[in-house]
Design a protein around this nucleic acid. Structure first.
Lengths: 144, 144
DNA sequence: GGATTTACTTATCAAATGATAAGTAAAGAG
DNA sequence: CTCTTTACTTATCATTTGATAAGTAAATCC
């Protein structure tokens, strides 16, 4: 296997993934929040509850800036903090009901666009796609 | 096929792709340029020569801002403008020798990290990966 | 029990980015 | 030949983002 060729395919592929996700998520962001704030909500939608440190590590964003943006999201009633019983320094952060609703709506719009994108794909091809997602997730795009 | 499940895998997958590409491209950006400027150079590396309008459409970024950032890149001697003979309103933009060198170096560092990431993968699995990239590129992540 | 580390906050500052208004010059349309 | 459109520039401004310094309070280490 020529790994140089594989790398070129990899680069082209990741570029396409970025383009397509940009297209799918275009305009789903409520105009009351900034892009960075959306990315926090998106992270929470998948990984809640999360501590501030986790969010800061994963996005990635410095602790002070993460703290600031979470405060703003809190002021907009989109997420909430909860004390952690075992360690009173920590705080779990969750989407509020409102935040959850906003993200549900966003994901629904993205899903609709996604389904449009794969409409007309045969059952066989869909299974190939699912397999391919699994292969790449486990072999290439795993976090370490 | 449950398309809902497929969508969930799709979302998780694109998130991973973003995380991994962030990791691979971390610190390859020269500290003399901003992230937006890097994205312009990256676009040029793949699609040069390009007009300002093309860059503006694809990135996406307003014309005035694209113009400003290209001027800054020009001042840093990373890209150059050429008149288009057929239409004197247009200008082709290309990486300069210096800009090309910077991007080559960046891509080399990314490739090195990529190869580390897939080191120890069997020949058989590598072929599976290549196949999976092809499947997803053609069936899901093609541009509209 | 004092020192250190962890988790997070507050405040402040500079730089990057996005948006808009107002221009120039060339091309194309009628 | 004038009018409109296209391609791009310049200037300006507000907002967002990133980075750093300095703090609090709780947990952990020795």
């Amino acid at each position: 296997m020529d790994k140089q060729v594989l790398f070129q395919k990899f680069v082209a592929f990741t570029t396409s993934v970025h383009e397509v996700t940009d297209e799918l998520t275009k305009d789903v962001k409520s105009d009351t929040i900034t892009p960075v704030q959306y990315s926090i909500l998106e992270y929470l939608a998948v990984s809640q509850p999360a501590t501030l440190s986790q969010i800061s590590d994963c996005l990635p964003m410095s602790m002070p800036n993460t703290s600031r943006e979470l405060r703003k999201l809190g002021e907009k009633n989109l997420c909430e903090k909860f004390d952690v019983a075992e360690d009173r320094r920590k705080q779990y952060i969750r989407l509020s009901k409102e935040g959850q609703a906003m993200m549900n709506e966003a994901f629904q719009r993205i899903e609709k666009r996604f389904l449009q994108r794969i409409q007309g794909t045969s059952e066989e091809d869909l299974e190939q796609i699912e397999l391919a997602l699994d292969v790449l997730s486990s072999r290439v795009f795993h976090s370490r």
